[in-house]
Structures are given as C-alpha cells and as structure tokens.
Simulated scan of single mutants.
Amino acid sequence: MLHNKKPLFTLFSVLGLAASVAAPAHSAVVASIKPLGFIAAAIADGVTPVEVLLPDGASEHDYALRPSDIKRLQGADLVVWIGPEMEAFMPRAVAQLPAQKSIEISELPGIKPLLIKGDEEDEHHHDESDHDHEASEHEHHHGEYNMHLWMSPEIARQSAVAIHAKLLELMPQSRDKLDANLQYFEAELASANTQIGSQLAPVKGKGYFVFHDAYSYFEKHFGLTPTGHFTVNPEIQPGAQRLHQIRTQLVEQKAVCVFAEPQFRPAVIDAVARGTKVRSGTLDPLGIDITVAKDSYVKFLSQLSSQYTSCLKGA
C-alpha cells in the first residue's frame, strides 16, 4: 500500500503540471489603451476581468511591447485595439491571435462614416528646416484619419456593441449578464451625453489651443470650437514658426485658454502664454487617474467636460 502512494501522487503531480502548462497565462479582456479598457469593462463587468496594456504615463504613439505584454495578449480571451495607425506596436502581436479573439475598432462596420480626416494644416505645424523628416514619418504613421476614436461617444457605443457580440460568442453562458451590461452602458452613455451637452453649452464659441490633435471627435460631437493645436505628434516639439503663429493669436486674444496634458507638459506652452491674459488648463486624453471599472468611460467623458469648462469659463 505504501509503495502505491508515491506513484499515484506523482501521477497527479504530472497531470497537474501538464494542465498548468497547457492553460494560457491568464484569461481576460486586454485593451491596448485605458479608454478602450473603460468601454470593455462596462460590458465585461462580472463576466471576465479587463486589463490595459499601456502603462499609465506611457504614450500610445511610441510604446514598445515587452515580452510580458506578448504573453498577456496570447493568453487573453479578447484583445481590443484601435488599429495600426494608432498603436503601431500592436499589428504583429495581433496577427498571431485567432481572428475571433481580437477587435480592431477602426475596422468595425459603421465606424468608417464617422471617421474625421486628419488636420489639413498638419504639414505646416513644423519648421521645414528641422522637422520635415520627423513630421512626415508621423503623418504616414497616422494615415488619412484622426484615430483618437475613443473620444467619440457614438464610436464608443458601437465599440461596446462589438465587444458584447464577441464576448457572447466566447462566453454564451454569460448572455444575461452581458446583455444587461450593454443595456446599462447605453443608457448611462445617453444620460451623460445630455448632461455634458448642457455643461459645455455656455463655453461654445470660445477659442482655445490644445496640445495635440487628440480631441477632434469629442469637440465635433459637443460643438466646441478649438483655435488650433500645438503639434500633431506629441513626441515632436512644435517649431518656432508654429509657436510664433500661436503666440500672435494669443496676444490678439483669439483664444482664452491653452491646454497641456498630464503625459506632456512642455515648457513651450508656458513660454507662449507668458504675458498674455490666456488661462492654462490640462486635458487628460487617456484618463490616467481613472480606475478601470463599470462606469469608467462615462466618468472619463464627464472629467474631460469638466476640464474644458473649468478653464474656458475661468472657474
């Protein structure tokens, strides 16, 4: 009897080890950037965890995947990302995943008609002498359209519908919870849309400069009127000519506010605004101080709205 126990124990150990090796590293919805994590969390709440690939403080424009990131992607139930024109670090990794395990938001049916073209003035935002090469590289990377799609409440809604459909395929046993989550998200989004519209109404028509062109979808949706942006690529400092143009407009009081970002607080913004009556604010395009949870996306939109109004109103 004593002799039989050891082989039996060893057999179970081997089976357990084999099972752990065969299983993926973890199961979760993995979103490339935080705002997509917010949308996914609304749908996956109570069904499967949601994780965000991009660490807080990192830029989606120049991130490089680590080996641990690759493992997370390979072990994910579902991977959600914008597309190669936004996250240049994602295509190779996503190509290795089964097609049913990833969602590329920019390729969803119904999204194409909602896309906003990139700023036609982009090429003029850099000094020809020292920024031409870098600027053209970035414009090629960004392609024809502005890809900050998470800034659009309508694209966010369609993204949630797509995430719901994919998770339903993968986890049909969770249909009731997934259906309830989508219904709740759509209702909360509609309510926030009305509330934010009212909050922003008094500041419509007021001019301002944002640091980079991340906000076009939000601005168009809610009828805001930006005077312009400092740069297309936040990794590249605007050239002297561009700064002179902005400075002239500030002196002429064509804008009441200039916005920096938590990820990028370049001294050029302070330098250009110095000595003018323009106010300074901060817009957070990634919601870095918001925890990924069921109500995060609506919280993100509301926070952005408050960031706009507090500076534009002068509160």
Rank of each mutant, 00 (worst) to 15 (best):
L2R: 12
H3Y: 10
K5R: 07
F9G: 02
S20M: 07
A22G: 06
A23P: 05
P24W: 03
A31T: 04
K34I: 04
P35C: 08
L36G: 00
F38W: 08
A44N: 02
A44L: 06
V50A: 04
S59I: 12
D62N: 15
Y63D: 06
D69R: 14
Q74S: 13
G75M: 13
P84I: 03
E85R: 15
M86R: 02
M90C: 13
L97E: 05
I105W: 00
E107Q: 13
G110N: 11
K117I: 05
E121R: 11
H126I: 02
E128P: 05
E134F: 05
E139T: 03
H141I: 01
H141G: 03
M147R: 02
S152N: 07
I155Q: 01
S159P: 01
A160V: 02
A162K: 00
K166T: 07
L167C: 05
L168T: 12
K177L: 06
L178V: 05
D179K: 11
A180P: 03
E186D: 11
A187E: 10
A187D: 10
A190P: 00
N193S: 10
L200S: 00
L200N: 01
L200H: 01
V203I: 15
V203C: 06
K204P: 02
G205V: 07
Y208M: 12
G223K: 09
L224H: 01
G228E: 08
N233W: 07
P234C: 08
G239F: 02
A240E: 13
L243Q: 12
H244D: 07
T248H: 14
Q253M: 10
V258T: 12
F259Y: 15
P266D: 11
V272C: 04
T282Q: 14
A293K: 15
V298L: 10
Y308A: 03
Y308S: 04
